[in-house]
Design a binder for these strands. Structure first.
Lengths: 341, 341
DNA sequence: GAGTCGTGACCAGGGATGATG
DNA sequence: GCATCATCCCTGGTCACGACT
């Protein structure tokens, strides 16, 4: 009955029970040498018996290492950020780091600031941010929060350490696939202008078209939502030359195909469509969607590796962007009358 | 040049600059009375000037309150858990609590244990778990980790504090909607047996059918994936009596509709389909899916409220389950030859 | 003198007590 | 006699040093 229910055991309790000094317990905890095996075992038994858990807070106080990382995630809980966060989280736990996550639906500067302050107050060793919107990153970059900052983003807005996914290459692969099928007028439904990923995908589309000497066309601006893809269908329908569309994400592609179907335009018979993201359900769209898949596992792990490198003063080796790969399904086909096929 | 770049200022630095004792600074920080306005202002200015941020680690050490909550999220980063986690996170931040999030793709007992230990080591005040699988909850319940445990789940597996969503009511509403349309044989595509949510939805389906005196049928067991819904289409097609299906989630509903279409079965002409979750894209399925929406914002906030109540020793008032509501779209219609319509 | 172990200071704050005006 | 402030000790660990074998 000497047990106290609320307060856990301390290192001194363990020391007393094992008949050693608290310092010896500390040695055992940290796997330091110069402890007799018999002593070590006595200590370990006392630890188990008391269900002793060392206080990370106390340790952090003196070592100045909290073993905590801050993660700021902005935007609606879509597949991409959630998946990246998950893998970052798992990688961190493998490295025995805890992650304080600050999620927010909107990328409001005031909220970002509040979240960042909460993180540094909890003395995280570094802050990692998964950002889509340019302004969100800028809000953080101008904050000077006293700890290293790592961004998972497609542009480096004055933030030194950054990791990303190969958005550009993915877009390029998508457009090249369409061109290889004989399409000469490949239109683009882009994401919102403030999105860095959208910008990269648009750049990949434009560059590829330019490289092939094909005529450019005006991108159609969406907002990632199925509704905006649906609206884009009207523009495509009004452009009889357009036989292929590269859409900046799967959700808009879904809306677009829906809108085309309503207008009696067949996919891929009349118009080929390529998406981006490879959501779990895209294989069951009508038709199954050809799309670009990102490797969020690599992205998340890269972010952790970079954060650890920055902390360890090993000059942050910028990892190569996480790869993207085209997944061919049934929403693309050779252009009718094209020499291909 | 007295500034040190790595180490932040301490309470003593602030005290010295303001010409007071560290205790007075502490009073200002905690908004305690008995500080002259002039003194308070001097201190506040010193704080601003030194960019002083109080160390939460040091504070936690003496107050035994870390202002940190642990959140364990298991399962693939689907919409539901991610959305719940987001709202919990925002609610916690509003209450000035930080959230250490431990996400894991699989609900492996060993991983759960490791995550929980990491959390208590970081001295979180309570652990909240978002669990789908029964076994995952059990693994945690048998752990005795020394801090309060709150579960966001559909069954209480020996865990005192629990909040949930009204899965049962949602399923009920879905089936009643189908019955009102004249359907007499409503089949069910269920989630995996180890899922508590799946069990509740199945229970709602079964109960409603039984209450109406309609004949029961064997539920078709899926695994949440579009592929399993696709497979279920074969069973439905082989059952000419079945004119309606309540599917336990939207992804399986998508696969099911795809499979039905392949077999020349029209939705909703021949078979009506209702899903569950209301993913963003369901409105653009073909046809737009009638489904059940959960309120994750309420769910997340309820979880925080409960956690705070448990911490405050206010006996945990079990909040009413977060509501679910049927969203009618175009995948359901009156049964042909039914007196309704 | 090398391997074991213990002693005291210290990290950055909060709380009780007492001193000062 | 009350508002205001300073002086200790306390939290739970780590680290530098010294003292035994």
């Amino acid at each position: 009955m000497t047990e106290d229910k609320t307060r856990g055991a301390t290192i001194f309790d363990v020391a007393r029970l094992a008949g050693v000094s608290h310092q010896t317990v500390s040695r055992v905890l940290n796997n330091l040498p110069n402890v007799r095996p018999a002593t070590r075992q006595r200590v370990e038994q006392a630890i188990a018996q008391l269900r002793y858990v060392p206080s990370q807070a106390a340790r952090a106080l003196v070592t100045r290492r909290s073993r905590m990382l801050g993660l700021i995630v902005m935007g609606a809980p879509g597949q991409a950020p959630a998946s990246t966060a998950l893998h970052f989280n798992e990688a961190a736990r493998d490295a025995r780091y805890a992650v304080i996550q600050a999620s927010m639906a909107r990328a409001d500067p005031a909220e970002v600031r509040a979240a960042a302050e909460l993180l540094v107050q909890q003395s995280v060793e570094a802050v990692v941010v998964i950002a889509q919107q340019r302004a969100a990153l800028d809000a953080l970059a101008g904050l000077e929060l006293g700890v290293p900052l790592v961004a998972i983003a497609s542009e480096d807005r004055g933030i030194a350490a950054r990791v990303g996914s190969d958005q550009f290459g993915g877009a390029r692969a998508a457009v090249e696939h369409l061109i290889a099928l004989g399409h000469t007028r490949v239109r683009h439904v882009a994401g919102p202008p403030d999105s860095m990923d959208a910008a990269e995908r648009l750049r990949g589309w434009f560059q590829t078209i330019a490289d092939r000497g094909l005529p450019a066309s005006e991108p159609i601006i969406g907002d990632w939502s199925p509704a905006s893809g649906h609206a884009a269908a009207a523009v495509i329908a009004a452009d009889p030359q357009a036989s292929a569309v590269f859409v900046a994400n799967d959700l808009m592609a879904l809306g677009l195909m829906h809108g085309l179907r309503e207008r009696g335009i067949a996919v891929p018979g009349d118009v080929s469509v390529v998406g981006f993201d490879d959501l779990a359900e895209t294989a069951y769209f009508d038709p199954p969607l050809t799309t670009v898949r990102q490797d969020f596992a690599v992205l998340g792990r890269n972010a952790l590796t970079t954060a650890l490198a920055v902390l360890g003063d090993e000059e942050a080796v910028v990892p190569t962007p996480a790869p993207t790969v085209l997944v061919e399904r049934e929403s693309t086909a050779a252009r009718v009358g094209s020499p291909v096929e």
